[in-house]
């Protein structure tokens, strides 16, 4: 366990040297908070852009608080996912390329600890950024529209967080058997996009799909009925996370010994 802590601390140190602890939370906050603000100021924005004939009246329905928060949630699933993939795609592949992984693994370091320390440090960075930004967005929605109950907020936070966790784990999995960070990022994004498109176009066939978790998270904040498929899809996601983590440890071991 002592060795694991050392590896973990090394990851943390590296992240603060890369300024990841500064820019990842700030970027997440920016993309999340932007949404309720633009929704709130939409009438003024349209006015100031002009180009409308004199006397034209546009009646914009005032978005509900739930819609505004759901808009930030959808930002996490586009820009947020992109940033997550971009910052984690090099964690192992990049170190292998530059030789750092070789330097560490010459010593009797457990492969499982090496992979899990990487996974845990990325997870902590992403969950803290995600919580800060989603919380601020919730607060903004509360100030600009109306407050959504904190329990609903927390539930949607955790449900969507499981999907983000799965993404981190999949990226780490590809990290273990690909050499170039670019290829890791490309393939992970491809798989995430395919999974999301499939699940959103065939929701009746894939109702337990982890990609639908974000849609189910919306149900919490919109106050609509909770779908029955929520629990199965959470279970499927947790199983997929554990399996990919185990698989990445196994693959990493064999790749390094070969």
């Amino acid at each position: 366990m002592n060795q694991w802590m050392t590896l973990f601390k090394k990851e943390m140190l590296e992240m603060s040297r890369n300024f990841k602890w500064i820019w990842v939370p700030l970027t997440f906050i920016m993309i999340a908070v932007k949404e309720p603000l633009t929704l709130y100021y939409m009438p003024q924005i349209i006015d100031s852009l002009g180009g409308l004939p004199e006397g034209a009246v546009i009646e914009l329905p005032v978005p509900s608080a739930g819609e505004a928060l759901a808009a930030s949630l959808s930002q996490f699933n586009t820009f947020g996912v992109l940033i997550i993939v971009l910052i984690t795609m090099g964690t192992i592949a990049g170190e292998r390329k530059s030789g750092v992984a070789g330097l560490i693994l010459v010593k009797p370091v457990s492969y499982a600890w090496f992979v899990t320390a990487k996974w845990a440090s990325s997870m902590i960075l992403i969950w803290i950024s995600y919580f800060l930004s989603y919380f601020l967005s919730w607060y903004y929605v509360g100030v600009l529209f109306e407050f959504i109950s904190f329990m609903d907020f927390l539930q949607s936070f955790f449900v969507n967080g499981i999907w983000l966790t799965l993404i981190v784990t999949v990226v780490i999995l590809f990290n273990t058997f690909m050499k170039s960070p670019g290829a890791v990022g490309f393939i992970s994004i491809g798989i995430i996009v395919i999974l999301s498109i499939l699940s959103s176009s065939l929701p009746h066939l894939l109702e337990w799909s982890p990609a639908l978790l974000s849609a189910y998270a919306n149900a919490f904040i919109m106050g609509s009925n909770l779908p029955d498929e929520l629990l199965p899809s959470i279970i499927v996601s947790v199983i997929m996370i554990t399996l990919s983590l185990l698989a990445s440890i196994a693959i990493f071991k064999r790749r390094e010994l070969a």
Binding site: F19, I22, W23, L26, T27, I29, M30, V33, K34, L37, Y41, Q44, D47, S48, L136, Y140, V143, L144
Partner: peptide, 28 residues
């Protein structure tokens, strides 16, 4: 009047975050 109709107290945090990001990037 568009600029006056905006509550700057609400927008200030975003401007500050943007400034911090630019400052950190330039220093680095």
């Amino acid at each position: 009047e568009f600029l006056e109709s905006i509550n700057w107290a609400i927008l200030a945090p975003i401007v500050i975050i943007q400034l911090i990001l630019v400052a950190v990037a330039i220093i680095d």
